[in-house]
Amino acid sequence: MPFLLVPLLLLGLLLFLSFVVVQQGTVAVITIFGKYQRIMRPGLNFKIPFIEFVYKRISIQNRSLELQFQAITSDQANVNFKAMLVYAVLNHEEEAIKNVAFKFVDEMSLMQALVRTVEGSIRTFVATQRQAAVLSLRGEIVAHVKEQLDATLESWGYHLIDLQLNDITFDEEIIRSMAKVVASSNLRAAAENEGQALLITKTKAAEAEGNAIKIAAEAEKVAAQLRGQGVALFREEVTKGMAHAVQELTENNLDPSLVYFSMWTEAIKHFAEQGKGNVIFLDGSNEGMQKSIQQLMAMQQLPAAGGPAGGPPQRRS
């Protein structure tokens, strides 16, 4: 019975060593005497005991890595980057798995190479840019890194899924100077906007004032024309009335001077009523009155000399 127990134990040990469980999300690389043989997929797998060995278990899930480094722009400004790198095995094909398993001695060497490659690619790009442009070039930096790393990572059996530049900062002194530049630019823009607004306001006010003056001038022109026409009509009517009155007096053998005397007295009455306290000096002597009447008579003769302008008709002998 003890002799049977030993073979059973050996058989059980062989069976135990013959089966390998591979977890979901990983693959196992199998070697024979140190040489690559095949790949085991997730689940229960069989291997030859003491001949086939599990060389390495490789995760095919996505991995992330945080980076923090510094770069220098073309105008010698220090830029601090904080980034997150997301990468994974290129695919589940045998060639990609072999590259992942055998390209690097260990995981630490892979991480070091990956970090230095990403940092070097970003530093190369930033070195061609000026400080003021870096903050607006996140997308261009990521595209540049992916373009530069795709071939390299593929040769290692990996591919870059995403690169996120979470934080881009400058030295404290540069940040203060940038804040001053932004503040001065805002002040200049505000001053320009205020100047434009003031110019528009002044222009509109000048246009409105010019239009008002033009309208007032046109109105004054029309008013002056109307006043002139009114005065002309008034004088014409007065002349016609005087001529008619003189004609009536002449036909009745009366002295036409009565008309001028009446006009004289009416004028004096008008001066007294409309004077508003003003003092008007008139010559009330006989000679002065005669002189004024003669002047009125001379005015009455003007239409007669000029033809038919409202004066009395001229008699022909």
Rank of each mutant, 00 (worst) to 15 (best):
D171Q: 11
V6C: 13
I280T: 09
A216T: 02
E236L: 09
H159Y: 13
K214E: 15
L165R: 00
A191E: 11
A113D: 07
S155K: 14
Q112T: 08
I72G: 04
Y87M: 03
V105S: 10
S109W: 02
H144T: 07
M299E: 15
G43I: 05
G230I: 10
D167S: 12
I161G: 05
Q196W: 09
H244S: 09
F33N: 12
G43M: 05
P312M: 04
E107N: 13
N211I: 11
L254S: 02
M297K: 10
V86S: 09
E172N: 08
V182K: 12
L187Q: 13
A223L: 12
D255A: 07
Q300P: 00
F50G: 04
I97T: 02
E173V: 13
E218D: 13
S121E: 11
A151H: 06
L17A: 11
A217C: 04
L137E: 11
K276S: 13
I213C: 01
N252F: 02
Q68N: 12
L254V: 01
R227C: 04
A304V: 09
L149N: 03
N211G: 05
I30K: 02
G277C: 03
A71M: 06
L137N: 11
I122A: 06
R130L: 08
E140S: 14
F261V: 12
M40R: 04
A272V: 03
S285Y: 04
P42K: 06
M111I: 13
N99V: 00
Q131F: 14
K146C: 06
T73D: 04
N186Q: 14
L5A: 15
I161S: 10
N78L: 09
T265I: 11
E95W: 03
S262Q: 07
V279R: 05
R235P: 01
E95D: 10
D106S: 07
Q225I: 09
A183D: 11
D150A: 11
M1P: 06
K240R: 14
A224M: 09
L233V: 06
S155Y: 06
I141F: 05
F33I: 02
L153W: 08
E248G: 01
L17N: 13
K202H: 10
V126E: 06
V259Y: 00
Q61L: 14
Q131L: 15
L4H: 05
Q129F: 04
V231E: 15
L5C: 10
V21T: 10
T128K: 12
Q247Y: 07
V246D: 00
Q274C: 12
A272T: 06
T250A: 03
N80Y: 13
T117Y: 13
L233P: 00
A298N: 09
L254T: 00
A191Q: 13
I60E: 06
A272F: 02
S262M: 10
H159I: 06
G210F: 10
F170K: 03
I48D: 01
N211R: 14
M299N: 10
G25I: 07
Q300G: 08
I268L: 15
W156K: 05
G310A: 05
Q24D: 12
V126L: 08
G288R: 08
A267T: 08
G230T: 13
A206P: 01
N45F: 01
